[in-house]
Amino acid sequence: MNTESILGISETLNTVLVLLIIGAFALTALRLMKGPSYADRFVAIDMLTGLAVAACALTALTTGRSEFLDVAFALALIAFVATAAFAAFLERKVAVNDGRFRDNGKQKADKAVQQEAS
């Protein structure tokens, strides 16, 4: 196999790679929908951006436009901020919920009972 023929089929193979990544997108989307916890969904979103970066790089090859690499860079930038924001959201949600639930009241009451006993 000479270099010429590889060049010829690499166009096609790039398209195949993009299709494979679309498959990976579908699998990740499945996890995104299934959850079950918020954390699972956020991990899936994180994965989606990784896939999007790879897809952008491959698109840059199949279309021959190197602008898509800039898109990949921007996506990588945004993905970091997004993940950090999601994590902060989750932690804040916990903080807000804290003290609200019966378990908390129970702990306090248990403590009170213990004190009473001692």
């Binding site: 954390a39 690499l69 990588a76």
Partner: peptide, 29 residues
């Protein structure tokens, strides 16, 4: 451009996943 993206990914992914893991733990998942 590719090199910068790569560098950025390598720099940020550990931080992002650390934050996410901490949040996952704290959220009681």
């Amino acid at each position: 451009m590719g090199g910068m993206t790569l560098l950025f990914l390598i720099l940020t992914i550990p931080v992002a996943s650390h934050l996410l893991a901490r949040a996952a733990y704290l959220s009681g998942a």
